[in-house]
Design a protein around this nucleic acid. Structure first.
Lengths: 406, 406
DNA sequence: AAAACTTTGTTCGCTAATCAGACGAAGTTA
DNA sequence: TAACTTCGTCTGATTAGCGAACAAAGTTTT
């Protein structure tokens, strides 16, 4: 099967309307597009004939005949999302409505050679297919998220710090071997989380926002004028190495005082380790001892919940540094919303309050008056939702506007 | 006359093609659009009939009959640009091809009430009309640049720090009184410089770049995915108050160590003043004495050209601080180019080198490998070109896509 | 419960948009 | 000078798309 599915300009407009509304009647399509009912009707008949749309239900009457509601035909096939994290691979099987049908997650190590990791991912894809009783040929498209900078049009990583072996490795080519009928779209993991938030989260319909993920590293996804801003090399949003303190500790990137080195998970664990050892915090010390002497950000989170002052202070410091950096970005970019996600977001409101306070203190009033800073409520699943959203984004494309050589 | 000129979707496509090429033959239009020659011919005949296009010359033969080249009809009227700076108002009269016909500049003080400044601008517009022997009715559109945050759709300033009286003052309404036939588009001055650079400068066709203006203040215009990024409140690009030193001097915004307060014109003059007084630099002292004891950035610039080490060090410091901030923005935004303009750009290569060095040191390799940082070669005139580009941008609009209530 | 209205979606005839191809005009090349 | 090219127009033929009428399936009024 040829994919992505090419649509004429008229068909593409119907699909756009349908995507916005989820379900739609013929009359609504005519209203939205401005076409005559006649044209609308024949166009939709054609789309149903091709198997892309189906009449699935009757809507409620508004004083007359009930409308027949249309939606995408979930029988035409599946989309797959592959969310490659630093330590895990998630594989999601969904129908073309975006409903998640199967979800598998496995530990994985992206420092391994790309062929191995991708083979693992491909095996998982075959597994979810089996679980669903589906065939590989039924996969229409695959969206892939990777924790590194991506050349979006080529579907290739460029100079990824976490996974140097992946340089110039073509994820698209690999997946094309096992799933020749499917198109493959690859993007950076944080961009994908931002996309997920925009499609299925609180960022729905927003024009300008920043999605920031704080875990082992710190990265961000940027949406400008409603579209993902990837930058000229696909590495936009890499805020982890913005300098917060010229005298700060040396980061693995070689510079001093990077945000990531001072405020992310490892830095938090490091500070907590010292607080535990020095006796500054009994709670942290106890927790660390119960954990074989290993300090983790999760323990700090637990200590916060118990009200441990040292742990709280560590979190506040992180929040302030993150907020200081965000303050500059708010001045520069003027987003309407900032969404915070990642392991660190489990630290709760203390972190958020510290971030907000730092941003408000250092940003211009005009930029902060309507600014909202919140945790992503879909947080941990934003990536999973995003890879599906990415695949669905390119499931139907306007034949007049070719965009990438999938 | 009704303006902006509304075009059907087909007509709009021809206009887009024409804007890209500047001049075009019917056959080229048919090739670009994919329409039949018949349709192309009749559509163009209609546009000529309405007076929007003219056949102005014959092109060179490519082995057969010579094409008749089309372009916009410069007889249909004029566009006006009003570039309001902190200390000057520039008024430009141009034809619809973007050729500057008249240009007047007058000192002005934006701290005056807006009605006065706008009256001055309107008088200048009438003056350029007289000089050209043209009538007010012939003005099709007016592009306005102002040194403050603009709500683009309303054509109104919001919370402008330099010009508080302008809050909620409608530039559009004022100009509509004197020039009821013209549409009015208002934008921030740095956005406009970025637009000028994109249309008439070295940024031609670039997708992602930052235009930074360094003068009394420091501001930037951002282009993402080929379009001006204005942010959710229209104040994106306001990088002058990003913090470079938490222990720095207090800025007029109330915070400490803002980039603007430490690296812009006044800070440079201040440092030079001290160098002159302390005797650290004889050249600066002499120059200041010859200037009635008043130190200005221009004097520092002159001292640099004479090789004064103290002056050069001041410039290097400014460059480094600007570069430090830009480094963060490069990581975040990943532009392909940064263009530097404003009074400070007269300081020459020492400044640029210091900026580049700081950016290269602190930004990620991937983001800097292909990054170019240069002075805007159209620099001082970028704003003038930008206001005309802005007016031309909305001269013809697609009737199906209303965008602003001009 | 029948009659009158409403809304949805299809059918049908007509108009206008648009195409392919022929053609004349105006060049260049052999 | 003849042969070929390219540009733009013109001419039927086709088709896309509209409005209006209509059938289907509701709801509201009487």
């Amino acid at each position: 099967m040829k994919t992505p599915i090419l649509l004429s300009a008229t068909e593409a407009e119907i699909v756009r309307a349908l995507r916005r509304k989820g379900q739609i009647s013929r009359t609504q399509v005519a209203d939205i597009t401005g076409w005559s009912k006649a044209k609308t009707s024949t166009e939709i008949r054609a789309l149903i004939g091709k198997g892309y749309l189906i009449e699935y239900d009757e809507g409620v009457s508004e004083g007359g005949r009930k409308p027949k509601l249309l939606r995408f035909n979930d029988q035409i096939g599946y989309v797959v999302g592959i969310d490659i994290g630093a330590t895990n691979v998630d594989v999601i099987l969904a129908d073309v409505l975006g409903n998640v049908l199967q979800l598998l997650s496995e530990p994985a190590d992206v420092r391994q050679p790309p062929a191995e990791v991708m083979a693992q991912a491909a095996a998982l894809v075959k597994l979810v297919l089996d679980l669903q009783g589906a065939q590989a040929e039924q996969i229409l498209g695959i969206g892939v998220g990777v924790p590194g900078p991506v050349d979006f049009t080529r579907g290739v990583l460029v100079a990824p710090p976490l996974m140097p072996d992946w340089e110039n490795y073509s994820i698209r080519s690999f997946l094309k071997q096992d799933f020749p009928g499917a198109f493959v779209v690859v993007d950076n993991d944080v961009n994908i989380m931002a996309l997920g938030e925009q499609r299925y989260g609180d960022a729905y319909g927003l024009e300008h926002f920043i999605f920031i993920k704080i875990g082992t590293g710190i990265g961000s996804g940027i949406v400008s004028n409603g579209k993902i801003h990837r930058g000229s090399n696909g590495c936009a949003g890499d805020i982890g190495h913005i300098c917060v303190d010229k005298q700060g500790p040396i980061c693995k990137c070689g510079n001093r005082g990077c945000l990531e080195a001072m405020a992310a998970g490892p830095a938090i664990a490091e500070k907590a380790f010292r607080a535990a050892q020095s006796g500054e915090s009994d709670i942290l010390r106890r927790m660390m001892n119960e954990n074989d002497g290993i300090m983790t950000p999760e323990l700090v989170s637990a200590a916060c919940r118990e009200g441990d002052e040292a742990a709280l202070e560590i979190i506040r410091e992180s929040g302030q540094m993150i907020g200081d950096v965000l303050a500059g970005l708010v001045n520069f970019f003027n987003p309407s919303h900032i969404f915070v996600a990642g392991g660190i977001s489990n630290f709760g409101n203390h972190l958020l309050v510290a971030i907000r306070r730092a941003v408000l203190r250092r940003s211009l009033p005009l930029a902060t008056t309507f600014l909202q800073i919140n945790f992503s409520r879909i947080g941990a699943t934003a990536g999973n939702k995003g890879v599906i959203a990415l695949a669905l984004e390119y499931l139907f494309v306007d034949e007049d506007k070719p965009f990438l050589n999938v």
